[in-house]
Amino acid sequence: MSLPRSNYDPRRVCLNPFPNFSLGKYRRTIGVYLAGGLFALANWTFLDAAILSAHAHAPYGEPELPPPVHVTFADWVPGICSLLGMLVVNLIDKDRVRGEEGFQDPRAVWRARLFLFIGFALMAGGLAGSVALLVLKYITHAYEEQYTYYGYASVSQNVALMLSAIVLWMSQSVGNEYEYNLSI
């Protein structure tokens, strides 16, 4: 599938342009608050699992047995990777990725796209790591539901961090409500 010559722009990287949302006057503010809510929900979910793990007790009826599994540093690593990826993605200048403004350095667009790829790769690696931990550490050993919650919390943290980064990217990519285009 190719684009017709009238719509072709050799500077484009993606076949489809960035989406344009019309959420009204406060679309940027709504997106930033939604991304912040997703970020808070992601970290609250994982911290809840970590605190539950730290205060886990032996199963009822068998007080001498310790809990079979705890949240360790390996469970924190996927969330840290996703958090770093989110920071990298949202620190990139959106105009450089699009290549719309004329920059003095011709490699600036290429470097911005490379850093964007690295950020999304970190988030995808965090998500893949949390799914791998869920399967290998919690599901294959057939722990009770109260212990598998630790793995599910890690996966949900990484999914919510990735959604938060995407929502924040899109909300900051839309035009500012205080932006005026004057032409003579």
Rank of each mutant, 00 (worst) to 15 (best):
T29S: 15
W110S: 14
E62T: 13
V131C: 02
M162I: 07
P17T: 07
Q146F: 12
I118H: 03
G175D: 13
G24K: 07
G24I: 05
D95C: 10
I51D: 07
I92F: 06
N158C: 09
D48G: 12
L83G: 05
Y60D: 15
G31S: 05
R11M: 10
M170L: 14
Q157N: 12
A40W: 11
W110Q: 13
A165L: 03
A42Y: 01
C81I: 08
F120R: 08
L3G: 08
Y26G: 11
L122R: 02
I30H: 09
V167E: 02
V97P: 05
W76N: 08
F73E: 09
D75Q: 06
W169T: 11
V89T: 05
H70P: 03
G61I: 04
F120T: 10
L116Q: 10
H57F: 13
A124E: 00
V89R: 00
A142Y: 12
H55L: 14
A165K: 00
A74M: 09
S154E: 06
V89M: 05
G79F: 03
S183V: 14
D105N: 10
S173R: 13
S164Y: 03
V174D: 11
S130V: 00
G31V: 02
L65A: 12
S82K: 03
L168E: 03
L134I: 00
N43L: 12
E179P: 08
Y150A: 01
I92N: 05
P67T: 05
S2V: 13
Y33W: 14
L87Q: 08
G24H: 07
Y138P: 00
Y150S: 01
W169R: 10
D105E: 08
L127G: 04
F18I: 15
N90E: 04
A165V: 04
Q104P: 09
R27T: 11
S22Y: 13
R113G: 06
M123H: 02
S2E: 13
P78Y: 00
V32N: 09
R98D: 08
